[in-house]
Simulated scan of single mutants.
Amino acid sequence: MNKGEREAVKVIDYLEEKCPAHRDYLKDVRKVIVDYRALPEAYEKLIRNLVTDDNKITESIEFLKKEIPYEYLESIISRANSISEQSETIIISEELI
């Protein structure tokens, strides 16, 4: 991971710790950054620049949800899973030949 990704993940981890009500969404954001490295740099920068004051965390997460909708994250995760499944099929067919 590059520096921008690491810093964005730190912010996501902090938000998840402080606001467990949004844990599922934040875990998906983290997964897209860490596992798939598929979040555009502009979104990573947006995450790094979120206000993380205790009294503004909920507002920051709501803002993040508007800028990076759950459906967008789901489409990345779904696409990555389908690619992964296709690769496994190819590997299996190659092993059988």
Score class of each variant (00 low, 15 high):
residue 77 I to C: 08
residue 64 L to S: 03
residue 63 F to L: 15
residue 58 T to Q: 14
residue 75 S to T: 10
residue 47 I to T: 03
residue 68 I to T: 01
residue 77 I to R: 14
residue 71 E to W: 04
residue 19 C to D: 06
residue 58 T to C: 08
residue 82 S to G: 05
residue 29 V to C: 04
residue 41 E to W: 05
residue 70 Y to F: 15
residue 45 K to S: 08
residue 13 D to M: 02
residue 68 I to M: 03
residue 50 L to D: 03
residue 26 L to M: 05
residue 17 E to F: 09
residue 29 V to F: 02
residue 23 R to M: 14
residue 11 V to I: 08
residue 66 K to R: 15
residue 75 S to R: 07
residue 33 I to E: 00
residue 83 I to Y: 13
residue 40 P to Y: 02
residue 69 P to I: 06
residue 28 D to L: 09
residue 30 R to M: 06
residue 46 L to S: 04
residue 30 R to Y: 09
residue 21 A to T: 11
residue 80 A to Y: 06
residue 82 S to C: 09
residue 51 V to N: 15
residue 16 E to S: 15
residue 47 I to L: 01
residue 19 C to E: 12
residue 20 P to I: 12
residue 64 L to E: 01
residue 63 F to T: 10
residue 40 P to K: 10
residue 46 L to H: 04
residue 47 I to S: 03
residue 63 F to K: 09
residue 68 I to F: 04
residue 28 D to H: 08
residue 16 E to H: 07
residue 42 A to D: 15
residue 47 I to W: 02
residue 54 D to I: 14
residue 10 K to L: 04
residue 32 V to Y: 00
residue 15 L to K: 01
residue 76 I to A: 05
residue 44 E to C: 10
residue 28 D to E: 15
residue 64 L to H: 03
residue 73 L to T: 05
residue 83 I to W: 11
residue 54 D to Q: 12
residue 30 R to N: 10
residue 57 I to K: 07
residue 35 D to M: 05
residue 76 I to Q: 05
residue 46 L to M: 10
residue 66 K to F: 12
residue 36 Y to I: 06
residue 54 D to G: 12
residue 38 A to L: 11
residue 55 N to T: 07
residue 26 L to W: 01
residue 14 Y to F: 13
residue 54 D to Y: 12
residue 30 R to T: 07
residue 57 I to P: 01
residue 59 E to I: 09
